[in-house]
Amino acid sequence: MTTPQTHTTLVLAADQPDRLAGFYAALLDTRAEQGLQAQHWRLAWPGGGRLEIYAPSSSRPQPRSSGRLALCLQRSCSAADRLQQLQAWVEQAMALGAMAPEAPRLESFGAEAWLHDPEGNRLLLLVC
């Protein structure tokens, strides 16, 4: 008997899936592709897997919530450039519609910035 292959997929409900797909495609430097229907988009996730962005069914809405789960986008660079690289990335995200409730900061493991994407989802940009 063959074991079925498992894939990693992150699923994100959105009010405007095409706009949110464009936001994440720009930050990940990848391309958003149409999914199974008009309100469904897919992006390749770095290191494998996919990010699926869709409009939830009106019969099964997905309320917005601010839990402890967040998407984390991560880049590597030299230790001397971490904060500078992060600040440039945050500026790009904000130009695309992100909101930054706090300033980027340097931590022992790297530089991090907690943001909200254009629909208010928590997003961590990490440069280490």
Rank of each mutant, 00 (worst) to 15 (best):
V90E: 06
Q85I: 01
R68V: 12
A26W: 00
P63K: 06
W114R: 03
G120Y: 01
L106P: 01
T6S: 10
F109H: 13
H116M: 04
L12K: 10
V11F: 00
A44H: 10
A44M: 10
S66W: 03
G35K: 08
S78P: 00
D15A: 14
P46Y: 05
V11A: 15
Q92Y: 04
R31V: 15
R68E: 11
R122H: 07
R42F: 02
F109R: 06
S76K: 10
A70N: 07
L106E: 08
P17C: 12
C77M: 05
R122G: 13
D117W: 00
L27Y: 10
M1H: 12
L51W: 01
A70C: 09
Q37R: 14
E107P: 02
W114A: 06
A93M: 01
A95L: 03
C128R: 11
A103D: 13
S59G: 09
A98H: 01
Q84N: 08
A111L: 05
S66Y: 02
S65T: 12
H40L: 08
S76D: 11
P118T: 13
Q16F: 03
N121A: 10
D117F: 00
S65K: 12
H7K: 04
R60M: 08
A93Y: 02
W41R: 14
R122V: 07
L126H: 15
Q85A: 05
L106F: 00
M99H: 08
L123G: 05
D29Y: 04
P17D: 12
H40G: 06
E52A: 13
G120W: 00
T9D: 07
S108F: 02
G49R: 08
A25R: 10
L123R: 03
S108H: 10
A26F: 00
Y54W: 07
A95C: 02
L125V: 00
V127T: 04
R68H: 13
Q34N: 12
A98S: 03
L125W: 12
S76R: 11
L20K: 11
L71W: 01
L69D: 06
A13W: 03
Q87G: 01
P63V: 00
S108C: 03
